[in-house]
Design a protein around this nucleic acid. Structure first.
Lengths: 249, 249
DNA sequence: TAGTTTTTGATTGATTATGATTGACTTTTG
DNA sequence: CAAAAGTCAATCATAATCAATCAAAAACTA
């Protein structure tokens, strides 16, 4: 196998899952650990990824520096599990709204081969969605640089055209008193409206979001089903009991 | 086997698989290793592929430098000059529509520091536009994977909300009889509508587009001003005479 | 046709990529 | 905290691939 071919595989895998273990790459490429290590070295050198203990991950945008390396990878793993569970709720023929944000982004690889229609305001999502041949619509409106999300009055109006079977939201805070909250009021409006346009409503939240309160509230706790790691585990246990195949990578 | 025939085979194989081993090409063409090596040398010289240890691969678009003195880079250079000229027509306070496509994409760096508003259906454009702090709106609608453009009825409807001072279009064909043409009817509709919503209308066309006719016509020649390399040169001469600083990198 | 240039294929030693191994280091586990 | 497991960078031998060279074959020229 040629070097650029392996690099391609590595980059694509990271793009899909945000992180990848070295052993996973060894399996996928058939190359030795040494070779993969060298590849990762090169790719890090050229700034295309970031090495972490045990593998590699997406290069983080400068803003969100991880305070502790270990915590981040655990966090990532939790996100991945939540995302996989969320995706398993999606059925063929569904029309979805998928919110901008990293947790919802992680869902996309698990939606592969599902016959669905997706509407999103997350510009980063589009690459992966269309790569998986998923019928994708993007909201029109103001492009927010920092979060790569589409927001604003136009987006809100544009959103009203659609009706969803399910919607999947990210959140910055989950709290008993203040419900689901997020920093940007503009993004909150989008979330709020999308929730109201959808039959089933899911909010994805890893443990770091609990008892956090952010600036703008976009829903009460009872307005949406919350998907957490604990729920995912219950789900898996159920599946193991009933002998249904678990939808995980 | 003739030389151009082998080159054809090589290029097609690379296009298909992104990378190709030398031995694979030896098998496919029946020529010797040495000959294939020489072919690869030539093709790399003319900028049509990138040699790697063990074979060859696609030339990366993003990371690779556009090296000087190649045929390909001449095309690039022409595009760049056209783009620079087009951007120089933009004034502070303008509201622009910028079409999806590589030539219009090249305009964006020259728009830096201009106080403008940009609407586009080109998803690739968004990164650069927002990076340069340009106020950017994206059309909403169906996301076309291949060209990374937003198209469809929704996009068309969304587009109607806006009014532009200037619009900049790409094209696949320019012909006296058939005007401006492009392969995808959906994209043509977008172009057509955007043209009608704009006070000034510009179509960017490098020399390879002349006397080409594509599937769908989106405008007559007299419906838009066409920006070509020849015009750019006149523009530069004028600027030199009048001692105005030329807007080039 | 004979002479010239171009293209091709085989051979060479040099260069590069690879996989296994090692001991050092890090993280997890009890 | 200490043992165990996992991961790391460094090193080395091997195998694959390379550029350079030269002679034979083919194409071209006069």
């Amino acid at each position: 196998m040629l070097t650029p071919e392996r690099h391609q595989i590595i980059l694509e895998t990271i793009k899909k899952h945000h992180t990848v273990k070295l052993k996973e790459l060894v399996k996928q490429t058939g190359a030795s650990e040494s070779t993969i290590r060298r590849d990762l070295d090169q790719l890090e050198q050229s700034g295309q990824l970031r090495r972490v203990h045990g593998g590699a991950s997406l290069k983080q945008s400068a803003s969100d520096e991880p305070s502790m390396g270990e915590k981040v990878s655990k966090h990532h793993e939790e996100k991945e599990l939540i995302a996989a569970h969320a995706a398993s709720l999606v059925e063929h023929g569904d029309c979805l709204f998928i919110d901008a944000g990293s947790t919802t982004y992680a869902m996309i690889p698990y939606l592969k081969d599902k016959d669905i229609i997706v509407v999103t305001n997350g510009l980063n999502h589009l690459d992966v969605l269309t790569e998986y041949q998923i019928v994708t619509y993007v909201l029109g409106g103001y492009v927010k640089h920092r979060t790569r999300a589409v927001i604003g009055a136009g987006a809100l109006q544009n959103l009203q055209q659609y009706r969803f079977d399910k919607c999947f939201m990210g959140t910055n805070g989950v709290s008993l008193e203040d419900g689901f909250t997020t920093p940007d009021p503009e993004e909150a409006s989008i979330k709020q409206t999308a929730l109201h346009l959808s039959k089933s409503r899911y909010v994805l939240a890893d443990s770091s979001k609990f008892e956090q309160v952010s600036f703008t509230k976009f829903a009460d706790l009872n307005e949406a089903e919350i998907i957490t790691e604990k729920q995912r585990r219950r789900f898996r246990e159920f599946q193991e009991k009933t002998n249904v195949k678990v939808v995980t990578p």
